[in-house]
């Protein structure tokens, strides 16, 4: 294998074109913004407001089903702070991973399968761009916005949560350590996982919609399993989150390596 340098002009050309084109298709942009807004702004705001309105909702019953040492930090808080810390500090953190996952999967489907669907792949393959550079470009097309949306979403979340919870908490309690791990370590891993699944799925489908459906069928059960497990039991504390992130990174990178190997002109054009 030749170790040639990446042609960044070509990579930027592809990424720039993809993002410009995606910005112009409402059917891609709207769901990509709606989900983060719902998860990162609307939901925490509703929780915060209801925590302010009510006098200490009984969270103890929920917390008794949780291993003592994990529930400890929450039970030791004043009663009216418990709901908001439980939900906005802990429960939302795993749920938040849907954002990088969805954004990267949708963009990857558009970048890989969409290129076939629009019949633009063949002319691209007839250009001198190296297959590996093309792969890098397509990776960045999905990865960068996924991480950017996640981080911006998180900033919005932190502002909304801290503002609304101020009368209850009288302090800034987000970001927590758990949130930092989620944002900086787990979210990029999940984005990579989503797009590496899509790379593989896109090789077998001819439209981005099919890719989304098939990809969704692969990814969503895993997500619900993970989210259900972790929120239900509140198992996710910081070390566990770090470990989960490491596992996701490992799976994603293995999938991605396989995807790069199969990403040759010959294989791509045979699918056209």
């Amino acid at each position: 294998m030749s170790r040639q340098r990446t042609d960044w002009v070509a990579v930027r050309g592809v990424v720039g074109k993809d993002l410009r084109a995606v910005r112009r298709s409402k059917s891609v942009v709207i769901p990509m913004l709606a989900v983060p807004v719902l998860l990162m702004i609307v939901l925490p705001a509703v929780i915060g407001l209801s925590a302010r309105a009510t006098e200490g909702v009984g969270v103890d019953r929920l917390l008794t089903s949780i291993p003592g040492d994990l529930a400890e930090p929450i039970l030791s808080l004043p009663e009216r702070e418990q709901l908001i810390v439980l939900v906005n500090g802990y429960l939302l953190a795993p749920l938040f991973l849907i954002v990088p996952l969805m954004v990267s999967a949708v963009l990857a489907a558009d970048a890989f399968a969409g290129e076939k669907e629009r019949k633009t792949l063949e002319s691209l393959l007839h250009s001198p761009i190296r297959a590996r550079d093309l792969f890098v470009a397509k990776f960045l097309t999905a990865f960068l916005p996924a991480v950017a949306v996640s981080w911006l979403g998180f900033v919005a979340f932190a502002i909304v949560t801290n503002t609304i919870a101020w009368p209850v908490m009288h302090r800034m309690f987000v970001p927590t350590k758990l949130w930092m791990v989620m944002i900086l370590w787990v979210a990029p891993a999940v984005a990579t996982l989503g797009l590496s699944v899509m790379v593989r799925v896109s090789a077998r489908t001819s439209t981005s919609q099919e890719a989304n459906q098939l990809g969704g069928a692969v990814i969503l059960p895993l997500i619900f399993l993970a989210v259900g497990q972790s929120t239900g039991l509140l198992l996710v504390d910081t070390p566990v989150a770090i470990a989960i992130g490491a596992v996701i990174w490992a799976v994603a990178l293995v999938l991605l390596r396989g995807g790069v190997k199969r990403f040759t002109r010959d294989a791509l054009v045979a699918q056209v």
Binding site: V9, A10, G16, R24, E122
Partner: peptide, 20 residues
């Protein structure tokens, strides 16, 4: 093999960048 979501000029610019 042109991208419908770009203008004619953008399609050419894109192809040029891909060719460095």
């Amino acid at each position: 093999g042109l991208d419908d979501r770009l203008t004619a000029r953008e399609n050419l610019r894109y192809a040029a960048m891909v060719r460095n």
